[in-house]
């Protein structure tokens, strides 16, 4: 589904990614771990098409298409979803309005008609409930006055509604208490399917206790310096990243 080859990215004059390789197939869950400032969010942003990043080398293909050629909104409509590390607030725009607009934009891209208003409400209410969110959140402005944990849950609600193919979760677990973590993990697990893939950026083993990854990668100094199975995360928890970086 996703093939990242020798990806090199600068921000201004600073090299951040320096030849990163990663292959993700449908149905897989990849965890990306690594020290602060290693370039994990940069990778997430480059995959989702945020401006301000200069791709100086390499390529990314997504479903056999050149991902880097696509504007951000086309990537989204083609199924790339980013759950943000720092979700933004939008005053005056209700959650339910945003969800409907986003869903319809994606449906239109797929050649489907606009979602029926009643069907939409039924769907959004059931997803809200599944994430243990009060329905009132639907009618509040996007993330405005939400706690850190509520914002993260709201990202997962959007993911559940839009049913993307490639889900990128950038530190979705940070700032969640243990109950919220379980709810978010349940939300992600419910979305697992053989034609959907996940890239989960995280610092902590505890998320991986709930969502078992197929692969764990360590991103440091702009590259994947080590890849392994779920057991690599446990090793990292024990030893930190130092032993890898020196190697």
């Amino acid at each position: 589904m996703l093939k990242i080859k020798d990806l090199a990215v600068n921000v201004g004059a600073k090299e951040i990614l320096k030849g990163l390789n990663l292959n993700v197939n449908a149905g897989e869950i990849h965890a990306i771990m690594g020290p602060n400032g290693a370039g994990k969010s940069t990778l997430s942003h480059v995959l989702s098409g945020k401006s301000g990043y200069d791709v100086t080398g390499g390529s990314i293909t997504y479903n056999e298409k050149d991902l880097l050629e696509m504007p951000a909104e086309i990537r989204a409509r083609e199924g790339v979803f980013l759950a943000f590390q720092y979700p933004v607030e939008i005053a005056g725009v209700t959650n339910v309005y945003l969800l409907k607009a986003a869903l319809n934009a994606i449906r239109k891209h797929k050649g489907l008609s606009e979602v029926d208003a009643m069907d939409f409400l039924t769907l959004v209410k059931s997803k809200t409930k599944a994430l243990d969110m009060d329905e009132k959140f639907l009618y509040r402005a996007v993330n405005e006055g939400f706690s850190g944990g509520e914002k993260k849950r709201n990202e997962i609600l959007q993911m559940a509604m839009l049913e993307p193919q490639l889900c990128i979760l950038d530190e979705t677990d940070s700032g969640l208490d243990i109950d919220a973590l379980r709810i978010v993990a349940d939300g992600v697990n419910a979305l697992r399917s053989e034609n959907r893939a996940f890239i989960m950026v995280t610092h902590y083993q505890r998320l991986l206790d709930y969502i078992k990854p197929d692969f764990v990668h360590v991103l440091a100094d702009g590259k994947i310096i080590k890849s392994g199975g779920a057991e690599l995360a446990l090793e990292l928890e024990e030893k930190g990243y130092g032993w890898l970086e020196q190697a």
């Binding site: 909104e73 989204a76 939008i90 005056g92 725009v93 309005y97 869903l103 891209h109």
Partner: peptide, 27 residues
Amino acid sequence: SEDQLFFCQQRGLSPEDAVSMIVNGFC
């Protein structure tokens, strides 16, 4: 903000629709 615009784009909205949605919300 650029972050708001990018967020809306990441959810599938065109930049025009994003600005218009934010402005309409404001009004």
